[in-house]
Write a protein that binds this DNA or RNA. Structure first.
Lengths: 119, 119
DNA sequence: TCCTTTAGTTACCAAAAGGGAAGTATGGGC
DNA sequence: GCCCATACTTCCCTTTTGGTAACTAAAGGA
């Protein structure tokens, strides 16, 4: 294998990872799925702002990257369950770290807002 | 600035964090800056595919979120240095974790490719 | 017979993102 | 007197993204 080209996403692992988990709605989807197995409409109800089209698309991308698995039950009406794959499980600590970082970030912002609040 | 309200049922810290570090090129920019202080053109040379327009834009977003600092030296030609802020430093472990996860992901993909390689 | 539910797909359209190239200021070197 | 470098900004145009709404199948219930 040759040296990774500077424009190659493989050149930067951080970029690769963010390319996988950084899509629109992926944070919320992962946030839901890493807590429990969920069905399509269950996700849709939990994240009402997402359209079916987008939910499908993001789920397919996560599946294509091996982060989640999709299990179809041959029933009418259909039943499809999404859950974290083994590889997705290895993301959990990072998702937790992201969540903690985010909370401390939001706190810092809130404090800064309070400090400069001149009401 | 519109951060999600904490009482919003859609409030998702993971999404917040990804909104901050998940923009296009941000992975690479952070990857560079978390290693050393860098000047504008230095970043541009390191990531040749990014346009000046985008580099400026992404740097300003990171700065607005308090992740990096921008220091201007009153010189001709101009000299501007970008580095991680204190808050950005707190991201480093996450960036490292992302990098490690990405490497193991890439390895797994490479192995899967080898296993199914029918040449 | 019609309605409901589930888990989608498809077509269409508006908005946003992003690339490329050119312009800007300033002072020093040749 | 012209060109160089730096760190941008601005304009224009194409590509991508994402939302809305309508359509699908199939079984069970009223």
């Amino acid at each position: 294998m040759s040296h990774p080209a500077p424009d190659d996403p493989l050149f930067c692992p951080t970029e690769t990872a963010l390319g996988i988990i950084g899509g629109k709605w992926k944070g919320m989807i992962l946030w839901c799925i890493c807590r429990k197995t969920m069905r399509f409409n269950e996700l849709h109800r939990t994240i009402p702002n997402i359209s079916q089209r987008m939910l499908t698309k993001q789920l397919r991308e996560l599946e294509a990257h091996g982060i989640i698995t999709r299990e179809v039950f041959a029933q009418i009406p259909p039943r499809v369950e999404y859950r974290l794959s083994a590889h997705g499980q290895s993301l959990k600590p990072i998702l937790d770290a992201l969540e903690n970082w985010s909370r401390s970030y939001l706190n810092a912002v809130a404090e800064a807002d309070t400090a400069t609040d001149d009401t």
